[in-house]
Structures are given as structure tokens and as C-alpha cells.
């Protein structure tokens, strides 16, 4: 430190006063980010713990309920996130090499992937909203007919709006339904729109050979749904965990997109180069962690055997 202070004028503008060298500042930032990532891992560990406990003790709930998830969409989202991670890592490389234009393009593409991910998530949530596949008390597989779609695609909002507050307007939703189906679920046919399904819940088959997920058709009785769900009780627990996990993860995706947006803005101003690219690197670490968590969420929630 002593040496450096002798040449105070050489203190670059990006170097905070209490650091002696850019290297020290960079490594401090990196260590700080890794520590923060460890707290994120522990934050998610609570949900993984809840998942593990209920799955170990009641595997039948998970086997039954996961058929309601569309694993094609899950797989697409996995690919989207992996691509975004790749472009993010590439962006860090571009920053290191001082390729400003490429850096901006790659960051923008990464944010775009984030939007794609959230868009698909929105479609999935909306489908569950319509089908009444909601957490806890709101789990009501018959309620698919005519509930309002959530106003926004934000993970938490979809999760947080109790069904009771949504007014029923069959006419409006009828107009919405086919559109979202056609646009979003090419490979599967979620049971959500036809009137004949008023009391019949058809489990959407997952992708691939029919042998895997033979469509289970259950006749759900309004008064005693549990007895007809093939004796599978407490299915709502699965959806509580599903929404909690993907919801929290979705929030992290949004946070990551905002951070990358901020980094993108600074990149466009030309703040980063071979000497200083710490924010790009740290935002990248965060984004990769979000990807990492999804890598586990995908098989745990969508691919249950």
C-alpha cells in the first residue's frame, strides 16, 4: 500500500481509495461475490430441503403430480438458460479483450434469453392457474374453467394471487385460452379449455413415447376430490413446492436480468476493458448460479420417474 500511495496520481478512477492495486480490488470483489453466492445456495437449500423431505416421505405425490408439468417447456427453458450462460461467459471474455461491441451484443442476447425464460415460465404458470393447479389451499383441479389469467407473468404474482380474488368471466377467458395453447404448447395438449372437461381432469401427457406417461384420467368429484385422485392425498404440497422453487428462481432470473441490464448500460458507455471488467465478471457469476440452480430444478420437478 505504501508504495502505491507514493504515486497517488496513478490511482485509476475505478480503484476505490482503500485498495492498493486493481488486482486487490478485483479479488476482493470476486471473493465477495462468491460469498454472496454461497448465501444464495443456502437460501435455496431450504426449498430443496422441503422438496427432499416430502419427496422421500411421499413419493407418490410427486410421481402423480409431476405429470401436470410440461417437460417440453421445462427442457426448452433449460436450453435457453444454458445458451444464456454461454453468451454470458463469452461476454466476460469479450470484456477482458476489450471488444466493446461484441460485449454489448452478447449481454443483450443474455437478457433476451432471460426474457425468453420468463415468457415460457409465464405460459406454464398461466396454464396452471387455469387448471387450478395451485399451491396449498388453492389447489382445486376443477377450477380450470374460466379463471382469469394472472395479470402479469411475474413469478411471485402468479403465485401470490389467491383464486378467491379472481372473478370468473368465462366469456373472456374463452377467448384467451385457445390462443395461448396454440402459441405455447405445441407438443402437449393441456387439459384446460373444453367444456366437457368440467369434471374431468386429463393429465397432459409428457413428451415422447406414450408408454411413459399414459394419460391418467380422473373424474374429480367436487365434494370429495381426494378419494378420486387415485388415493393420492396432499397433491397440493407438490404445487406449493413447485411454485415456491420456480417462483424464487424466477425472481432471481429477474434480478439477474436487471443486473446485466445495468452492466450493459455501463458497457455501452465504454467503462469496461482489459484493465477493469469486474462488474461484468461478477454479474456473470451471479447469472451462472441462477443457471446452476435451474440445472437441478429441472430434473427434480419435471422429470420424476
Amino acid at each position: 500500500m505504501n508504495q502505491h500511495e507514493a504515486h497517488g496520481s496513478e490511482h485509476p478512477s475505478f480503484l476505490a481509495h482503500h485498495f492498493a492495486t486493481p488486482r486487490q480490488q478485483f479479488e476482493a470483489g470476486k471473493l465477495g461475490m462468491w460469498l454472496f453466492l454461497s448465501t444464495e445456495i443456502l437460501l435455496f437449500s431450504g426449498l430443496f430441503c422441503a422438496y427432499a423431505v416430502y419427496r422421500a416421505n411421499h413419493p407418490e405425490i410427486f410421481v402423480y403430480a409431476h405429470h401436470f408439468l410440461d417437460s417440453t417447456l421445462g427442457a426448452i427453458n433449460t436450453v435457453v438458460l444454458i445458451c444464456s450462460s454461454f453468451t454470458m461467459a463469452w461476454a466476460v471474455r469479450s470484456a477482458q479483450l476489450g471488444q466493446k461491441k461484441r460485449l454489448c451484443v452478447l449481454l443483450a442476447f443474455t437478457i433476451l434469453c432471460g426474457f425468453g425464460f420468463m415468457g415460457i415460465k409465464f405460459i406454464e404458470y398461466r396454464h396452471k392457474w387455469h387448471a387450478g393447479l395451485l399451491p396449498g389451499k388453492h389447489y382445486n383441479p376443477q377450477a380450470h374453467e374460466g379463471d382469469h389469467a394472472p395479470v402479469s407473468g411475474h413469478a411471485d404474482e402468479a403465485e401470490h394471487q389467491p383464486t378467491t380474488t379472481a372473478a370468473r368471466h368465462p366469456v373472456e377467458s374463452a377467448a384467451v385460452e385457445p390462443e395461448h395453447q396454440a402459441a405455447t404448447t405445441p407438443a402437449s395438449t393441456p387439459a384446460s379449455s373444453t367444456a366437457s372437461e368440467e369434471h374431468t381432469l386429463q393429465v397432459p401427457p409428457t413428451i415422447g413415447p406414450a408408454g411413459l406417461a399414459a394419460p391418467v384420467t380422473t373424474t374429480a368429484d367436487v365434494h370429495a376430490e381426494e378419494s378420486t385422485d387415485e388415493k393420492v392425498k396432499n397433491v397440493q404440497i407438490f404445487f406449493s413446492i413447485y411454485f415456491a422453487m420456480t417462483g424464487l428462481h424466477g425472481l432471481h432470473v429477474l434480478a439477474g436480468m436487471s443486473v446485466i441490464g445495468w452492466v450493459l448500460w455501463r458497457s455501452m458507455r465504454g467503462e469496461f476493458g482489459p484493465l477493469y471488467y469486474t462488474p461484468v465478471d461478477l454479474a456473470g457469476l451471479y447469472w451462472h448460479l441462477v443457471d446452476l440452480i435451474w440445472i437441478y430444478l429441472f430434473p427434480l420437478l419435471y422429470l420424476i420417474h
Binding site: 443456502l42 426449498l47 396449498g136
Partner: peptide, 19 residues
């Protein structure tokens, strides 16, 4: 962080009965 997720689950549980 585990306290964080615990109290969030508690708040969500209280508000929306996720169970």
C-alpha cells in the same frame, strides 16, 4: 439465508395457505 427462506415460507404460508 435459511432464516430468510424460512420466514418467507412462513409469510407466504400465512398469506396464501400454501401448507
Amino acid at each position: 439465508p435459511v432464516l430468510g427462506i424460512t420466514v418467507v415460507l412462513l409469510a407466504v404460508e400465512k398469506a396464501f395457505h400454501i401448507g
